[in-house]
C-alpha cells in the first residue's frame, strides 16, 4: 500500500517535470509580459526623455483626448467587424464547397490552403503593388473586364485605402476559417442529413437548421479566435499603407509600433496595448458567454 502511494506521487512529480520547460517558457513570454505591460501603462516611461516614474492614469487620459488614437480605435473596430462578417460568410461557403465529393475536391482543398500558408507580410507587400494605380493588377483587371480607362488611386484615397486593406485581409484569412469549419461539418453524422431530407427540407433549410446549429460551438470558438487576431493585425497596415493616407488606416497595433519604435514612449505604447488587451478581453468574454449558452 505504501509503495503504491509513493509510485503515484513519483508519477505526478515526473509529469510536472515533463510539462515544466514548456510551461515556464510560456509563462515567461506571455503571462509575465501581460502583468508588466499593465504596470508600464501606469508609468511615464520614455526612452528619449530618459524618464521612468509613476504617473497613474495620465497615459490613458492623454489617449482619450488624442484624436488620432480615437481614429485608430474606430478603424480597428470597423476593420475587425467588416473582416469577420465576410470571413464568416465566405468561409462557410468555401467549407461547403470543400466538403463536396466531386472531381475537383483535392484541387480546391490544396488551393484553399495556399492563403493560409502564405506569410501575411508577403501578401501585404504584394498587395501594395497590386493596388498601385498604374501598374497594379487590381486596376488592370478592372480595365480588362470592360471598364476601359478606369483609374483609381486606391491607397491615396481615404476610403479606398481602408477598403483595400480590408479586402486583402479577408483574402488572407478566409481559408483558415474555412478549413476549421470543414472539420466541424465533417463531424456531423450522416443520419441527420438523411432524416432532414426525408422530412423534405431544402438545402438552405438543412444548412441553417441542421448543419450550422450542429457546429455552433466550433463556429463561435473560431469567431472568437479569428476576431482576436484581427483586432491585433499589424503587418497588413505596416506594409500596405504605413497607416495612411494621413492616419486613416492606422490600426491600433500599428500605432503601438510607432509609439514604441519612433517615439520611444513605452508608457504610452503600453497604454495603447492595454486598450487593445481590454478590447480583446471584452470581445473574448462576450464570445465565451455566448459559447456557454449554446448547448447542442
Amino acid at each position: 500500500m505504501k509503495r503504491k502511494i509513493t509510485l503515484s506521487r513519483r508519477k505526478t512529480i515526473f509529469a510536472w517535470m515533463c510539462v515544466l520547460p514548456v510551461l515556464v517558457i510560456r509563462l515567461w513570454t506571455t503571462a509575465y509580459p501581460v502583468v508588466a505591460m499593465s504596470y508600464y501603462s501606469l508609468l511615464d516611461y520614455d526612452l528619449i526623455r530618459r524618464k521612468k516614474e509613476f504617473a497613474g492614469l495620465q497615459n490613458i487620459r492623454n489617449l482619450a483626448k488624442n484624436k488620432q488614437f480615437l481614429e485608430s480605435l474606430s478603424f480597428t473596430v470597423k476593420f475587425t467587424m467588416i473582416s469577420i462578417c465576410f470571413i464568416i460568410v465566405l468561409g462557410v461557403a468555401l467549407a461547403l464547397l470543400m466538403k463536396q465529393n466531386f472531381g475537383g475536391r483535392k484541387l480546391i482543398r490544396t488551393v484553399a490552403l495556399i492563403p493560409w500558408g502564405l506569410s501575411m507580410i508577403v501578401v501585404s507587400i504584394a498587395a501594395l503593388w497590386a493596388f498601385d494605380d498604374t501598374y497594379g493588377i487590381v486596376n488592370d483587371l478592372i480595365r480588362r473586364i470592360g471598364f476601359e480607362g478606369y483609374h483609381f488611386t486606391w491607397l491615396a484615397d481615404k476610403s479606398g485605402a481602408q477598403v483595400a486593406v480590408i479586402i486583402v485581409n479577408i483574402w488572407k484569412n478566409v481559408s483558415f476559417f474555412a478549413i476549421i469549419m470543414l472539420a466541424a461539418f465533417q463531424g456531423i453524422p450522416g443520419e441527420l442529413f438523411e432524416s432532414a431530407r426525408i422530412d423534405g427540407a431544402s438545402n438552405w433549410k438543412i444548412l441553417f437548421h441542421v448543419s450550422l446549429p450542429y457546429v455552433m460551438r466550433t463556429f463561435i470558438i473560431m469567431i472568437i479566435f479569428v476576431g482576436v487576431s484581427q483586432i491585433n493585425s499589424f503587418e497588413i497596415v505596416y506594409a500596405m499603407t504605413k497607416g495612411g493616407p494621413g492616419t486613416t488606416t492606422s490600426l491600433l497595433a500599428y500605432r503601438l509600433y510607432m509609439e514604441a519604435t519612433k517615439n520611444m514612449n513605452y508608457g504610452m505604447a503600453s497604454a495603447i496595448t492595454m486598450v487593445m488587451f481590454l478590447v480583446t478581453a471584452v470581445y473574448g468574454i462576450i464570445g465565451l458567454r455566448i459559447y456557454r449558452k449554446v448547448d447542442y
Binding site: T30, P33, A36, M37, Y40, F234, A253, L256, S270
Partner: peptide, 11 residues
C-alpha cells in the same frame, strides 16, 4: 489568445 502585440514591450 495573448497576441505578440500585447507582450512585445515588456519582452
Amino acid at each position: 489568445m495573448i497576441p505578440g502585440t500585447v507582450t512585445v514591450i515588456p519582452l
